[in-house]
Design a protein around this nucleic acid. Structure first.
Length: 420
RNA sequence: CGGGGCGUAGUAUAUCGGUAGUAUAUCUGUUUUGGGAACAGAAGGGCCGAGUUCGAUUCUCGGCGCCCCGACCA
């Protein structure tokens, strides 16, 4: 894409009403637009990051048999009453609104009820199970306090999957497969090495532990205790001698860290399926409960976490897997020769299927283009200028490195691992 | 929801009970182009409401909004 066509612009000043690094950088770079507290819109560059994160998640969910759906935001009251989650005293962060006839409807904050209810129309035999259903969609939660930019909003994007199994054993197998898929997602996002599967409280519906995926970061809201050898952690909320013994963890080996929850999976047993009257009939004609699990990843939050982790004083440093563009191509000076060379290189790279943001703006100083490239944080910066041409080609520099080098077009293509 | 802070131009800030200033962004022109260029010109501002006052952006009260700490976070 040509930067001259991009409607967003970078800002020199940091927003006065945002302290958190993710919001500061993403707003300065024009990735997101703040609508109100805890509610952010995604602009072209930000949306590209979101879509890449979604693609990674989608691929991994599909790989463990997930079937994608898109449930509704508006929710009927009755199914939530069946599970006793409609009452504001039971669930205090509902957004609710009314139809013209006065009937109350909910604005979706999670989707166990509608998914289970819909499933009931199709699943009734042991032959129909197991199934896993997921969606990537916005959730609405009326938080008392939104904070930390896109890390904790009132409207946010989430991947939520729900699994349905015939037996506890079958459920556990799926549960573990999804947990492994989560590890793969975080690895692909570049945070695998600092993201731990963390035992946490299972919530009010199960006595079992839930598993959070916690990424080590100072912006985290949670304190966890990490066993580096076993590559797992325990949330402070269940950090008792009794629980540690149950989990077979040695207190002496645990290290306290701040972390942010980027995913959460937990067993639901048959709480929702039973409450909504969704059962299956087994081989012997016997009616049985369906064992389910739910699996969430905050997509928009994850983008914020990546912005927090992959950034320096000059701006963002997107991992290649989620960067809006692979290459930021800069042309310096308004002279004809570099302009022509840059136009050609841009066309060639695009032809090779490389995603390029081309800073073709005229009348913009070199310093400003460099500053923008650092702020926007594409993995590779390629400069075309009189000087680079004189030196024999183009200067390529990784965002994470200090110095670049001059390469020819062929060398550049090889470096970018172009598929021809 | 408890506590604290803040609200001035698109953005970021300053001053002041009496003509609201600067930077940046924007527009025009000339020059410039390897780390946020220079000069000249233009346009643009006091969250809402009430009160005090000759006069309020400034003081008081209320509302709304935003940030931070805490609580909350199935």
């Amino acid at each position: 894409m040509k930067q001259s066509q991009l409607f967003t612009k970078t800002k020199k000043e940091s927003p006065a009403d945002e302290i958190s690094k993710n919001a500061e950088l993403l707003i300065k770079g024009g990735f997101i637009h703040k609508e109100m507290a805890g509610v952010y819109a995604f602009l072209p560059l930000g949306l590209r990051v979101i879509e890449k994160i979604k693609t990674i998640i989608r691929e991994e969910m599909n790989a463990v048999g997930g079937q994608e759906v898109y449930m509704t935001t508006l929710q009927p009251r009755d199914i939530w009453e069946k599970t006793d989650r409609w009452d504001d005293k039971k669930v205090d962060n509902w957004f609710k609104t009314k139809l013209k006839n006065g009937e109350e409807v909910g604005v979706g904050l999670t989707h166990e009820e509608p998914i289970v209810d819909a499933l009931g129309g199709y699943v009734s035999s042991y032959r129909d199970l197991p199934v896993s259903i997921y969606q990537i969609q916005n959730k609405f939660r009326n938080e008392l306090r939104a904070k930390s930019g896109i890390l904790r909003g009132r409207e946010f994007m989430m991947k939520d999957m729900y699994s349905f199994a015939r037996t506890e054993e079958e459920h556990l197998k799926i549960y573990e497969e999804v947990a492994q898929a989560y590890h793969r997602v975080y690895r692909r996002l570049g945070i695998g090495h600092i993201t731990y599967r963390t035992y946490a409280d299972g919530g009010i519906f199960t006595k079992k532990f839930s598993d959070e995926f916690q990424t080590i970061s100072g912006v985290g809201e949670d304190t966890i205790y990490v066993d580096e050898e076993k590559n797992i952690a325990v949330n402070k909320e269940i950090y008792t001698d009794e629980n540690l013994a149950k989990l077979g963890l040695d207190k002496a080996k645990l290290v306290e860290k701040r972390a942010i929850e980027v995913g959460n999976i937990f067993p639901l047993e048959s709480k929702y399926t039973d409450a909504l009257g969704v059962y299956y009939t087994d081989e012997h004609g016997e009616k049985k409960s369906i064992i389910s699990g739910c699996y969430g990843i905050g997509v928009s939050r994850t983008m914020g976490v990546l912005a927090e982790i992959f950034s320096d004083d000059n701006g963002l440093m997107w991992p290649e897997s989620v960067a809006p563009f692979h290459v930021h191509l800069l042309v310096l000076g308004d002279k004809e020769e570099p302009q022509k060379a840059a136009d050609k290189l841009y066309a060639d790279l695009v032809k090779k299927g490389i995603e390029v943001l081309f800073d073709d703006r005229t009348g913009v100083s070199a310093g400003e283009k460099f500053a923008d490239a650092d702020l926007l944080g594409m993995p590779y910066r390629v400069v075309v200028s009189e000087r680079s041409l004189k030196d024999g080609g183009y200067e390529v520099k990784k965002r994470t490195e200090e110095k670049g080098k001059i390469v020819t077009e062929d060398e550049l293509l090889k470096l970018l691992k172009a598929k021809s």
